[in-house]
């Protein structure tokens, strides 16, 4: 079961937030903004904490990808452009990678190709919402 989705822009600001179930307590929108900013910083630090230096170890260190807690699991997908997709799911949810890829595809289609969307601004695209709900709802 998918709990919620957050999208952060390059600078760490929250551009989209959607809850798909009532498991999480409802926080104010300011709380979510603060959370997003905190996570952006934490992500940057985790990339530097790698036991391997930046030059060795093959691929450069990436920053937090999956975080687990007792009641939920959070997966963070960072695109090549710096946009982060945070997906909160139940711990046993399978195929989160596939879901994140599909969400990224929906973002690239209905947000990026929308001439009325300003880059890095909050997302207010009705088509994106519609397709996202249509994709996520059957999985609940």
């Amino acid at each position: 079961m998918i709990l919620s989705l957050l999208i952060l822009n390059k600078a760490g600001g929250l551009v989209y937030h959607r809850d798909f179930s009532n498991t999480f307590t409802k926080l104010s929108s300011n709380d979510y903004l603060v959370l997003a900013g905190t996570f952006h910083g934490v992500h940057a630090i985790t990339a530097r904490l790698s036991p391997f230096g930046p030059s060795s170890g093959g691929t450069p260190s990436s920053g937090l990808e999956v975080m687990e807690s007792e009641h939920f699991r959070m997966q963070c997908f960072q695109t090549l452009t710096g946009t982060k997709f945070l997906l909160f799911t139940e711990p046993q949810q399978p195929n989160v990678d596939v879901i994140l890829r599909r969400i990224y595809e929906l973002y690239a289609d209905y947000v990026m190709k929308n001439p009325f969307y300003q880059i890095e601004m909050p997302i207010r695209c009705e088509a994106f919402d519609r397709h996202l709900m249509a994709y996520i709802k059957p999985k609940q």
């Binding site: 985790t46 691929t59 260190s61 990436s62 937090l64 687990e68 807690s69 939920f72």
Partner: peptide, 13 residues
Amino acid sequence: DNFISYRTNNYKL
């Protein structure tokens, strides 16, 4: 609730 672990592509905490 308690955070248990997190993983990056190089290490896990």
